[in-house]
Design a protein around this nucleic acid. Structure first.
Lengths: 115, 115
DNA sequence: TCTTCAATTGAACATATGTTCATATGTTAA
DNA sequence: TTAACATATGAACATATGTTCAATTGAAGA
């Protein structure tokens, strides 16, 4: 199985150099998690909505055209990954972007897509 | 179904303002696609490897500890999304990062994770 | 042309993920 | 404390996604 690789065209110096500069698995996994949470259009739309101002669950549901339940599920995921944070005010729970880095990431990819 | 929302706590002004500044669906979808393609640890590792230097399929496979076939599948996805590009040299095919924006995105998220 | 070998592709499988419906929290006002 | 209501949660379902094995393509040298 692994023997196949040995007779292939591997440039061992390059490979070793690349392996040395490769971030730890944990770092890669955390980067991937951030990208993953932003990779669903529904969630991305929520984050884009919150880029402007604080909104409650039911406002977000109205913006996204989805049920409160669906939005709540997505918000929980976003909360777990520290993408958004919330505060309760009476019966409502208001959400905002938690992290400036996320705002920057979103803005950058938005610029990229818009050329 | 939709009637439920009407009797809830929706702030119509906020909602309308947010809807106006919301990017088009196509833009959101393209942003999501970029994030999605970077959200798989296997693919992210490939991109991180290519951040340093040009590598052939079989070098990448060695770096990532996966089969050439698996890497080839991932590279095709990365190619389709214009994340990487390739050039043939003899029997080998060498890959590099296609887009500076991608490099910037990766670097930013790497910094973020590293505090 | 034939052989070797790096890369690609196809198809099938297992797993992960988002969504939905139903139910449960928890807060406010009466 | 009760009723009303905004939000959250659980479980089940359908779909999407990554991986694997097998077969194919395409290039280089004998």
């Amino acid at each position: 199985m692994n023997d196949i690789c040995l007779i292939k065209c591997i440039d061992k110096k390059k490979v070793n150099r690349t392996l040395e500069s490769m971030p730890d698995y944990e770092v890669i996994a955390r980067m991937a998690d951030i990208f993953k949470v932003l990779s669903d259009p529904s969630r991305l739309k929520i984050v884009l909505a919150l880029l402007d101002c604080e909104l409650c669950v039911c406002d977000i549901a109205a913006v996204c055209g989805q049920t409160d339940s669906a939005i709540s599920h997505q918000l929980r995921i976003l909360r777990t990954l520290k993408i958004v944070k919330n505060r309760r005010k009476g019966k409502s729970v208001f959400y905002t972007i938690d992290d400036d880095h996320v705002t920057a990431l979103i803005s950058m990819s938005l610029e990229h897509v818009n050329h």
